[in-house]
Write a protein that binds this DNA or RNA. Structure first.
Lengths: 107, 107
DNA sequence: GAGCATATCTTCGCGTCCGATATATTACTC
DNA sequence: GAGTAATATATCGGACGCGAAGATATGCTC
């Protein structure tokens, strides 16, 4: 199997499920997804993007120039979607296990 | 809020919910809990235990000598239980969000 | 033209985790 | 009684992800 994804990495992949986004757009989308709980910093974002690209989980999409500023879009690859599904499943199991244990404090 | 817990740390806290365990017992319990997916190494375990003790999430419980070998038990503190509940809740939300997005590929 | 928002990217340090290694005692096997 | 496996705790170094800070550049508003 693969290594567990950390929170920022997980949210970046989740944010890219619907459509390709550029760096700054990703920061906004992750903020929204996490209801303001996770604010990505540039160092985290671009480091993660490079890593995820090397791993084949995301790929560069188109580039656009809007108001003279470059927008570099990234999209989720099939491999990235698979990794996200696997990770979600792993987390679901952990959540289930912990929830059960926390409920049955009189076990 | 607090920082997200990494997988090994999360599982250590979960394993301690039911009853205090000693180091070697924790390794076995985490292995069982995760259905063999996570095998704690000593370096991970004792490092995490020291950290969690400093954070007030676990505390030393009794010590026993069984067959001449020392067993040092650790137990979950109320603070540790709170941290585990918070982390479980955070993960549950992330799982929900990701699941929704992955389902609605035609959203 | 000063200040702010947008946008990408780099550098550096910290914390966590893991693999390797060490130590000690008991239990089992031959 | 010698050798090996299992139990049990502990330390060290390296790898890696993350976050803080800052560099750089453009366009908009006042």
């Amino acid at each position: 199997m693969s290594d567990p994804l950390r929170e920022p990495t997980f949210l970046i992949l989740t944010a890219l499920v619907d459509e390709p986004l550029h760096g700054y757009g990703l920061i906004a989308e992750v903020d929204r997804l996490s209801e303001g709980r996770v604010s990505l910093r540039p160092g985290t974002l671009y480091g993660a993007l490079d890593r995820l690209t090397d791993d084949g989980f995301v790929a560069r999409d188109r580039e656009e120039v809007v108001d003279g500023r470059l927008r570099r879009y990234y999209r989720l690859t099939p491999g990235g979607e698979g990794a996200l599904r696997a990770e979600t499943e792993r987390m679901r199991r952990h959540v289930e296990t912990a929830t059960l244990r926390l409920q049955g404090r009189t076990a």
